[in-house]
Design a protein around this nucleic acid. Sequence first.
RNA 1: UCCUCCAUAGCUCAGUUGGUUAGAGCGGUUGACUGUUAAUCAAUAGGUCCCUGGUUCGAGUCCAGGUGGGGGAGCCA
Length: 506
Amino acid sequence: MVYIEQLQQFEGQTVTLKGWQANMRESKGLLFIVLRDGSGFCQCVVNLEEVGEDVFNELKALSLESSMELTGLVKKDDRQIGGYEVQVTNGKAISASIDYPIAKKEHGVDFLMDKRHLWLRSRRQWALMRIRNAVTFEIHAFFQNRGFMQMDAPLLTPNAAEGTSTLFDIDFYGRPAYLSQSGQLYGEAMAMAMGRIYTFGPTFRAEKSKTRRHLSEFWMIEPEMAFFDNDMNMDLMEDMIREVVTKVIEKCRFELTEVLERDLTKLETVAQKFPRITYTEAVHILKGNQAVNGKTSIEVLQDDLAALQKQIADNETEIADKQSQVDAGGIKKGKLNWLKNKIDQLKVENKELQERADNIPQWLESAKNFTEGEDFGGSDETVLTRLFDSPVMVYNWPTPIKAFYMKEVEGDPNFVKGVDLLAPEGYGEIVGGSERETDIEVLLQKIKAHNLPQEVFEWYLDLRRYGSVPHSGFGLGLERLITWISGTRHIRETIPFPRLYGRVEP
RNA sequence: UCCUCCAUAGCUCAGUUGGUUAGAGCGGUUGACUGUUAAUCAAUAGGUCCCUGGUUCGAGUCCAGGUGGGGGAGCCA
């Protein structure tokens, strides 16, 4: 048995493929079966004269997603997806699929989410899962090649410690416990034992977020390094993003460009040095008081709005034009359908464009009126990243809006050494990190200031009692990184079985 | 928790100021066609118009409440 991705090694030879019918077209005496086997897609041509009536009729009767075994000659054919075609000499059904619910057309989100277990078979989801796998692999490779040790933090924790987030609570043998929102504090303990570590596991957030960048269960990578200050932390962050993105482009070029139609030039900007700006600079830029590459945020947004409005107007013209062709009548059925579909597509596109156009004035208003000292909202991140074409790092944040464990900037307790990495094109925050506070007195004070119970942090404070050292780390949101790399509109497509507000099934 | 939009065939949608027997495409089935790329062409089956109540001679359409869902705010990766 041979897998589709290996076909290039078998050109001119006869192979046996096993897989599922992803599509079939038929003509008199000919079947064109697009077979998928998980490793790829391949058109297999069944000729009545070649295989005989029995085999031909058996394969012809199969519908979408039936499983089968096909044997045939591998032939190079540049017109085909994957570049090869199999000319079938024999084949048989393994199991028929009847009334497969997902059709070869556009579906609504709700329907597809209910059918997620089947949706994963479609080409777009196949590409996304392959990219997810490549991202996971390259993250491990990056850390392993640098001597980091992978260690797992517990998923069950005794307290809702860090304060802000809402956590899922469970009954742990009669005691309250929570699903972990972060492995970071444990990561610090492990770094004090192993030097440089990283965790790679699921985390849980119980916020009732219904947006395209939130999941209730997602995977996070949290490196933690002893003897790293925040500059070294930012260097590592930047190297990691650059290397992972570059390798994934290399490995998944077909998935990105052919299936997802991702504009790779938008990703290739990771080769540049990532701009590093302080929170204070970011505020000036956001409010339009400081230009980037000769343009202020206000100018860029106004240009964007004008471009959007022009696009919408152009689409409307096209819709009207096509509609008048339809109304005029006398067109062949195929052409008519094509026109109708095009009109529907343009209408959907305009709905989305209009939504974005409606948002821009609000973003502008929110950016102009931003109060220095507050945290950035989703739209603020979008505005900020819109000005840069590579990822941006924002560091030195106001103390009150950040977690208790972040180290104060030397000589200025109003700021802490936190850093967020924002992805371009509006994808927003994909990494958050900081240098950690090492001074036990400062930590004790912060724990009080944040109204946190000191007893549950005694073990954490021990890390400062016994050989405290400067250390830093960050948390990378796996699905957010994949969403950006793949150019996907919604984060839910980047994880096999998404858990989000209002959904635990399938 | 708040704001906003949506619910019509298996799926994606249209349905005029409220009017008689609710439509199209895709998908399914049957047939035609020996190189198709969302193939094409012909025929055919397929409906509790989300639920409850109201207005009206008459409701898919208007009103109220509910349910489910999309997008966003807050929070964050």
